[in-house]
Amino acid sequence: MKVSQRTEYGLRAMVAIAAAAGTDHPVPLRAIAEAEGIPEQFLDQIVAQLRRAGFVKSVRGVNGGYMLSRPAADISVGDLVRVLEGSLAPIGCIREEVAAEEFCGRIRKCHTRNVWLRVMQAVTRALDSISLADVMMDEVAVQEVGGS
């Protein structure tokens, strides 16, 4: 599974907004864009998508910006990724919105489809098990894959 820049930026923006949770001060979009190095116009599109999905609410006015619409502990990374990325299916024949038979004529004799189903289930479980609050508390340095 390759994560798009939209999803990477969206998660980073949610962390920035969550950092201000409980302060009653909305986070201006420009401040997030500058702090995270995200183009403001692109971030505006992403945050609008997150707002429509009910993860953030906007506050208008001079001191306006964005706030979480519910506690960070109630927002899973999996939910954020599905909103921003779409399906977690690594291959088209297991996408929920596509009938497998319509996608591929080999579906009844395909021995590899279960591999992709297991991959999707594992990724889904992993992402759903991490809340935005967990991300905020995670101070453990993660070693790069392939690094020495």
Rank of each mutant, 00 (worst) to 15 (best):
F55S: 12
L84M: 02
M136R: 06
V98H: 12
K57I: 13
R60C: 04
G10Q: 12
A89F: 06
V115F: 14
A16T: 07
L117Q: 12
L11D: 03
V119G: 02
Q121K: 11
D138V: 07
L84P: 06
I46N: 02
A13E: 14
S4H: 14
E97M: 03
W116D: 13
L68Q: 08
I46E: 13
V115Q: 12
V15W: 03
Y9R: 11
F55W: 05
I130S: 05
H111K: 11
Y9M: 07
R125T: 02
E139V: 15
A48R: 15
K2T: 15
L68N: 01
G105Q: 12
A16F: 05
V47R: 09
R60L: 11
M136H: 03
V59H: 10
D24T: 10
G54Y: 06
V145C: 04
E102Y: 12
S69F: 06
R30C: 08
E102T: 13
P39E: 10
F55K: 01
V115R: 13
E97F: 04
L84K: 00
D74E: 14
K2W: 08
A73W: 01
R82Q: 11
T112S: 10
N114W: 10
V59N: 05
L84T: 01
C104M: 02
A33H: 08
Q41F: 09
S131Y: 02
S4Y: 03
D74S: 15
A33W: 11
G54A: 09
Y9K: 03
I75T: 04
G105R: 11
I107D: 00
S129M: 01
E96Y: 04
